[in-house]
Amino acid sequence: MTSESSGRVRDDTARRGTTAGGGATDPATEAFVAHRNLLFTVAYEMLGSAADAEDVLQETWLRWAGTDLAAVRDPRAYLVRITTRQALNRLRTLGRRKETYVGSWLPEPLLTTPDVAEDVELADSVSMAMMLVLETLTPTERAVFVLREVFDLDYDEIAEAVGKSPAAVRQTAHRARAHVAARRPRGAVPPTRTRDALDAFRRAVETGDLQGLLDILAPDVVLLGDGGGIKQAVLRPVRGADKVARLMIGGLMKQSAAVSMEPAHVNGHPALVLRLDGELDTVMAVRFDDGRITGLYAVRNPEKLTGMRRETALHR
């Protein structure tokens, strides 16, 4: 779905973007292409789904292509406004879809380009742990928080995007900021430290080193699995280091296929990719607090793994 939607946007912009003489692009296409990665990032942070974010971009392009550019003072702000409104509409639909989802719903992991990790604030905002925190906000709170805290839009711009007054947006931003602050990971962890911990985690799982795994996991660690009813996964959160460690080691031991665990850069952070007989099976992201793993997020639903086929560029 992601590749199809992305293809529709590219094909449509290509058709509209070439003149009869061939080659030159029109102003609408140039503006859309220039801000495309930004618009995708806005939509993805609001939705947690690359497939839905691509569909939002398609809807944004269709509305943008029919806009009188002479009346647009700031193409970037105008495009962000369209994208936000479309993402809000889809976020409410997505909420109803999650109510019937089988097991835990996790954000769709993305294989990200190296430059995402270099922007610490952006990487933090798209981390699996933060995306799950954003899931606890209302749709409007999420839109306001993302636009203000991640993209640094002013309150007047956000007000136009979400259809609220600037005063109401300020109150919503304050409420959302406090809500997120109480739930976000405690302190940034350097990527090298995360990679070292993941290497130790991988070795412990592969060798069946239970004590080694317990040394890395926080006592109150939580494992969430997302199989979407398509692949087997834990249906409820598994809590506690001993339970999680035994489940991880036992699950790997039961596999009859050739299993490999490889490092990858997912959502701007080091993560692990599990392959069975060379085929992508699971993306494992983690949350760190105070030097230990407090959250493990295992995405197995194959419909959510399309973002791992190629690197995705995210920008603010």
Rank of each mutant, 00 (worst) to 15 (best):
T13M: 15
V42R: 02
A173I: 05
A20E: 15
A204Y: 02
G295K: 14
T282D: 00
W105A: 03
T140D: 13
A197Y: 00
L217G: 01
P166A: 13
E206N: 05
D196I: 03
G250E: 09
L223A: 03
A161H: 08
S127F: 01
V72I: 11
V116Y: 07
E54K: 07
T194H: 07
M284T: 04
L39D: 03
A34V: 09
D196M: 02
H315C: 05
V102M: 05
Y297F: 14
A173N: 12
A43P: 02
D124H: 10
L39N: 03
R170Y: 02
L62K: 10
D52H: 15
L57R: 13
K164A: 14
V299R: 00
A87E: 07
E99W: 05
A143F: 04
D26F: 10
T112D: 03
A173E: 12
P27N: 04
D12C: 08
D124S: 05
K254H: 13
R10I: 12
V283L: 00
R170H: 07
D277P: 08
A24M: 12
P114F: 10
V283H: 00
D277S: 13
L210D: 02
T67K: 13
A143N: 09
R10A: 13
A143G: 05
Y78H: 15
G307H: 08
V120I: 06
L276M: 06
E141Q: 10
